[in-house]
Design a protein around this nucleic acid. Structure first.
Lengths: 229, 229
DNA sequence: ACTGATTTAGACTGACTTGTCTAAACACAG
DNA sequence: CTGTGTTTAGACAAGTCAGTCTAAATCAGT
């Protein structure tokens, strides 16, 4: 029985790390990625753009330029590939958000920075909605999408939960729930209406409810409300 | 042939085609629905619960208790069935929202009534997210889902656009955009987190931003903000 | 150069997909 | 009753699906 994909060094998202220049040709820095990496890249593109169910294995291996056997050597099957695809989306997006949040100063600004990250995402021409929302929409009840989506949602709630905990508000958890709704609404609206401006609109509402939660007596939030209008 | 698909729970469960104690005689009340109606009911249930792509027409005709040929006699193909399925979802939901809104008194209350309708929807055990968001997630670029979803989004924007136009606010269109985001966020969050309370949370935020748009000087909205906290 | 791990190309299975077609039965109106 | 429109059961085509398997080639480490 051919054994499956155990966690190998290039398994995760660091796609650029194993660019080994040890392959005879010294001048060529750009070595072709491993079949596993090419499969993940092809799956990411195809699954996200056309839907998981609509893309067959043959399309993935063709796009990756990889033999059929390599897929089943590196992954246990399509479900495994789906799982890794969603794990990659999770890691990629959380990294971008964390980076954007880290650059902001102050708890309220860090919250608003999340919506800036959304705005940068929405303007990308490849944007086609939240990969996890889309995956859940077509997922079977026992599919690998369920776990991955639950993992992602935990991250999202913890993100706003941690950020609102830094604010001197009466009920930070309630504020976090409200911000999650704004996040989800911006994500869904940007896809359904093909309008990236939902990020800015959600950010405006976010500044309003942050101000409302703070009782509107903090000068920094007063300014936020003004600039939002 | 003109019958449009109202999502009717009656034809969903009883598929027995041999309950013909009413053959040609009286008892027109309990007459079996037409094959077309049974096909639409079966498609509505299966497409919504398991995804359009994941459900084959064999599953639909089996659930409807209808011969294969009847499907292609009443519909031009699966795409036609998908189109009618989404048209039915559109009509059913807009009817429910209009009803709920009509019962409310006052422009602000009518807006908040939309979120009450969402709350009633989310607590239904069959709720599995917005049929149009789910359909778009797995739709091919030339699929019938695109048109249907665009039609639905137009309705949604007009709904809040018309409601906010009744309010004495400075920028009703901006408020409408914000309310759409709250609507979308409640819908997405209720599905992804399996928590119907997103409707109440979104309603709270809606009352806040309505109050903010009104300048917080209307007594009715002051009360809304208080009860929301 | 030897060895084991990995990749390749392709045949192949069995199940599933949408859609067409046939032949017969049924429904109902004139 | 007859004729037209509708439904039924099932076979059938042509394609796609995920997954297995073989046999040879190529890789990397020693």
């Amino acid at each position: 029985m051919v054994e499956h994909s155990r966690s190998r060094p290039d398994a995760l998202i660091n796609l650029d790390r194993s660019v080994c220049y040890n392959r005879g040709m010294v001048a060529k820095l750009e070595k072709k990625p491993s079949p596993r990496q090419r499969l993940l890249a092809a799956a990411d593109e195809l699954f996200y753009n056309e839907g998981i169910h609509a893309v067959g294995i043959d399309r993935v291996i063709e796009r990756a330029g990889v033999a059929r056997g390599s897929l089943y050597y590196n992954f246990s099957g399509k479900d495994d590939l789906i799982k890794e695809y969603l794990l990659g989306r999770h890691a990629s997006w959380t990294g971008r958000v964390d980076e954007q949040v880290a650059k902001a100063n102050g708890p309220a600004e860090k919250i608003l920075a999340v919506f800036d990250a959304l705005g940068a995402l929405f303007v990308e021409p490849s944007y086609r909605g939240c990969a996890f929302v889309n995956a859940i929409a077509e997922a079977p009840v026992d599919g690998p999408e369920i776990r991955a989506a639950a993992h992602f949602r935990s991250w999202l709630h913890e993100l706003f939960g941690n950020l609102t905990a830094e604010l001197p508000v009466h009920n930070p958890q309630e504020l976090a729930d409200q911000l999650v709704i704004l996040y989800d609404g911006a994500v869904a609206g940007a896809q359904m209406d093909n309008s990236p401006k939902t990020a800015a609109t959600a950010k405006t509402v976010a500044s309003i409810i942050i101000g409302a939660s703070l009782g509107r007596d903090l000068p920094e939030l007063e300014r936020l409300q003004l600039t939002a209008d």
